[in-house]
Design a protein around this nucleic acid. Sequence first.
DNA 1: GCTTCTAGACTGAATGTTCAGTCAACTTTC
DNA 2: GAAAGTTGACTGAACATTCAGTCTAGAAGC
Lengths: 217, 217
Amino acid sequence: MRENGGGSRDAGERREQMLRAALDVIVERGYADTRIADVAEHTGTSPALVIYYFKTRDQLLTEAIRYSEDTWYAEYVQRIEQIPTAAGRLAELIAMNCLPGTDPEPNSYWLLWLDLWALSPRNAGVAAVRAKSDERWRETIRSIVLSGQEAGEFAPVDADDFTITLSALLDGLAVQIALEDPAVPPQRTYDLAMRFASGQLGFDAKPVPKRARKRGS
Amino acid sequence: MRENGGGSRDAGERREQMLRAALDVIVERGYADTRIADVAEHTGTSPALVIYYFKTRDQLLTEAIRYSEDTWYAEYVQRIEQIPTAAGRLAELIAMNCLPGTDPEPNSYWLLWLDLWALSPRNAGVAAVRAKSDERWRETIRSIVLSGQEAGEFAPVDADDFTITLSALLDGLAVQIALEDPAVPPQRTYDLAMRFASGQLGFDAKPVPKRARKRGS
DNA sequence: GCTTCTAGACTGAATGTTCAGTCAACTTTC
DNA sequence: GAAAGTTGACTGAACATTCAGTCTAGAAGC
């Protein structure tokens, strides 16, 4: 049936294909209702093959979430690295958290976070992914703040306090974005987060953000 | 087998008993893994009886979550009503969001919120509960701000902006509390939220909060 | 005796996972 | 360089279990 009956097929490629399919399904139906049959269908294969690559459903889904988080972070790093000012980097970070790109499925990351949080209390693997992701994110904010203060761009507030507060604020706004609360449209979350950050750190809130074009320059 | 084989038993009492049992189970195992049999066991009855009272599992669980949100809000109202100053009311509101009581299961509400958020995108009933709860909560904050400004306690910031920002901040902090992130202990979330609020509204952050004793003055 | 409760046995549909074996490519052996 | 052997990707058909929801019958109250 396959044009490539057996034997070949790049190994890791299949895995990634399945991880991406799993993410699609999780976003569409939620973690709990994601069946391995769905993932198989999305990849044009059989359930048996899915567990051939991932021993269990849970491993597949956990790995998919980790994959997503890593991808997201990598994209952030890529976007940020040529921005010279700390204020600019912070603005980009906030934009990534608040402004959904015009992507295939727009709210994917946000929805994923909701599942990630809800799963963490009872799923050690998922909890580990979240803990790492959260820590990485906070460290990122912290280092922007410190570098901005060193450069004299930012006021000398306590970096840890600011970091925790901003990341919590962004998480909370992410909930509103994911749930598409009509009272809190994405652009507004960006404005509010920026106002908070610029107010605390004492820099001028830049004009409008140039909207995110996904990967590719 | 039951000392009360059939017949009597206050009607609504059984329902509430089941709702509370459902909440216990949801907190313990998560919404997705909450089975009718668990709820039956917690109430010392049979699965069939649970279905007798709630037509479907989904109805039971949705109603349980609504029940929890209403209870939580009612408790807030009760605590707040004799506090004279707007600053005091705001502090109590923040305390309720940030400081887990020394209750039976400490983090129950927070964990419930995570499930509530994760469920909302794909479950209309749950989404309605959340929307209402969120709206009610924001309206509460807004009215505290407005009354505080009228009384001259608070600076004349934009009430809507402040409300959305604070409620998002509290949601984000709730995630950290629910997940028991070691970097963000509950007391710290309270301090940070209070610092934000007092900074924005320009009132003195009161000393330590008298810790929450649950219901009963 | 009619209504309200209640339990136990049961059913039907999913659905994760296993398993035996197929199929093509590569490697070894002669 | 071909036959024989080996390996890794892959599948279809079972298997086993889990669970929401039903059905029947019986007990309690009016």
